[in-house]
Computed example of a mutant assay.
Amino acid sequence: MSAPLADERIPVTIITGFLGSGKTTLLKRILQGKHGYRMAVIENEYAATGIDQALLVQQDEEQIVEMNNGCICCSVRGDLIRSLGRLQARRAGEIAFDYLLIETTGLAAPGPVAQTFFAEPSVSAWYRLDAILTVIDACHAQQQLDAHREAQEQVGYADRLLLSKTDLVGKEALAALRQRLLAINCRASMQKVSFGNVPLRDILDVKGFDLDARLALEPDFLGDMGHRHGDGVQSFVYHQPQPLDLYQVENFLDAVVQLYGSSLMRYKGILYIADAPCRAVFQGVHMLMGSELGADWGEGETRASTMVFIGRNLPREMLTRGLDRCVAGVTPHERASAEFIYSVGRVP
Rank of each mutant, 00 (worst) to 15 (best):
K28N: 09
D212K: 13
L182V: 06
G294P: 06
A108S: 15
S263E: 08
Q144G: 00
P241Q: 13
D212H: 15
R321P: 06
K23V: 07
G196W: 06
V198I: 03
A141T: 01
D60N: 12
H229F: 11
L31E: 03
G322C: 07
A175P: 07
R303D: 09
E62Y: 14
G311Q: 01
L129R: 01
G208N: 15
Y99T: 04
Q283F: 01
D202T: 06
V285P: 00
A158H: 08
A109E: 05
R303A: 06
G106Q: 01
Y247C: 15
T105W: 01
V237S: 09
I64A: 07
A6L: 11
T306G: 07
S75R: 13
P241W: 14
P277I: 09
S122V: 03
A183I: 06
I203V: 12
F18M: 02
E150F: 13
R77N: 12
L27D: 01
V344D: 12
L222F: 09
Q53H: 08
I136F: 06
V327Y: 12
I64D: 00
L323H: 14
L145N: 04
I273F: 04
C326S: 05
D79H: 13
L100W: 00
E339I: 08
E103W: 00
H227S: 15
Q58M: 10
F282Y: 13
D159M: 02
G232M: 15
A176V: 03
V249L: 08
V249F: 08
E43T: 05
Y238P: 03
R160V: 10
L259E: 10
F97Y: 01
V113I: 11
A158Y: 06
I273Q: 05
P199L: 05
R29L: 02
D130N: 03
L87P: 05
G329H: 11
M318N: 10
G36D: 15
I72Q: 13
D159R: 03
T24W: 02
V256Y: 08
A40P: 11
Q152M: 02
S75W: 08
T134R: 00
L163T: 07
D202N: 10
R128V: 05
M39C: 14
I72F: 07
T24Q: 01
M190C: 08
L293W: 04
L264V: 04
E250F: 13
G230M: 12
C71V: 05
